[in-house]
């Protein structure tokens, strides 16, 4: 059995009276890609800060690499790679210097870093930008540089806080590809995200968080199987007609969710339900049959969407 890189028991963080993280338990194994999924304010980033040993817990136990971050913060941090939510690159420095200086923080020798910087530039596909200042980089490039920077010390665990927020779809896919490669190399990844597709793509296992608590835990496939149906039929009748249509089709499928702009019908066969709706005399303006996703899991668990 793989060793636990991170173990949290009853992990709690309070800011005065506000409980940001409310007694959560989880474990991350070596080489695993572990996700914290939830909407803004769910407690993901606060949990991440405790894991990154820069925020002390209020209660509970937390061990990272077998050490307590409240006691051994700097020692733990020396073995972590952290990719924060917003890039904090040195704007005055060139791309290669950002990697070099970060490596120097860990006391890595200049000779080692000379080689490592080239390797990381290749990994991040930034070789042509080597001598550019970071201000001239696109958002996706900055993100890749921030990830490359976090890898300079060859961390045991890479923590990524909302790694693709604000990136266009192409940049996100390039970044996912790089993260996949890290996973293949056996790097333990901990990722917070509010994008279900990102969690599905990258995570072996994840916890769904809401209001500081864990709502569910498992692999993306397990969660979908447990909390949703195989398919989802999305139908739109127009904003004024959705409510009336929903009343009449509520018996169809396993479950019906009425959202402000559309109705979701959870079923094993979306096409079949669509035909039944038409038979009942309702003609949707648009319809879509799709596979269930983590978004549906979250909706089921909390009654809310991930991205409001």
């Amino acid at each position: 059995m793989a060793e636990a890189m991170i173990k949290a028991v009853g992990l709690t963080k309070k800011f005065e009276e506000f409980v940001a993280v409310d007694g959560i338990n989880f474990e991350v194994k070596k080489g695993e890609a572990f996700g914290l999924l939830g909407p803004n304010g769910a407690g993901k980033s606060t949990t991440m800060r405790m894991i990154s040993a820069t925020s002390q817990r209020t209660a509970g136990d937390l061990h990272i690499l077998g050490k307590d971050p409240n006691q051994k913060g700097p020692e733990i941090r020396a073995h972590l790679g952290v990719v924060p939510q917003s890039d904090n690159l040195d704007r005055e420095l060139k791309v290669w210097e950002n990697l070099f200086i970060y490596g120097r923080y860990f006391g890595l020798s200049r000779a080692f870093l000379k080689k490592k910087v080239d390797e990381l530039l290749a990994f991040a596909q930034l070789e042509e930008k080597r001598d550019a200042k970071t201000d001239s980089l696109s958002g996706g490039m900055k993100r890749r540089l921030t990830i490359a920077r976090a890898l300079v010390s060859e961390p045991e665990i890479l923590l990524l806080d909302e790694p693709t927020t604000g990136l266009d779809p192409q940049a996100r896919h390039v970044l996912w590809d790089r993260l996949f490669r890290l996973k293949e190399q056996g790097v333990t990844l901990v990722i917070t995200t509010h994008y279900m597709d990102e969690a599905e793509q990258l995570c072996d296992r994840l916890i769904v968080m809401d209001k500081g608590r864990i709502m569910a835990e498992g692999s993306p496939a397990e969660l979908i199987k447990q909390y949703s149906s195989k398919e989802v039929l999305e139908v739109r009748f127009g904003s004024t007609k959705n409510a009336e249509a929903a009343q009449n089709i509520s018996g169809l499928g396993d479950r019906v969710e009425v959202l402000p702009d559309r109705i979701l019908i959870y079923t094993e066969d979306g096409e079949k339900v669509l035909k039944q709706i038409v038979k009942l005399g309702f003609e949707p303006v648009t319809s879509l049959v799709r596979r269930s996703s983590l978004e549906d899991v979250f909706l089921r668990l909390t009654g809310r969407q991930l991205v409001d």
């Binding site: 390797e119 990994f123 010390s153 790097v187």
Partner: peptide, 24 residues
């Protein structure tokens, strides 16, 4: 496409924590 396979010894091997903290 460039080779993206990185050499990887791990922080436990390459970071001398006492030296890194002292010279921080």
């Amino acid at each position: 496409m460039n080779s993206t396979k990185m050499t990887w010894q791990g922080a436990a091997q390459i970071v001398d924590i006492k030296k890194a903290i002292f010279w921080g």
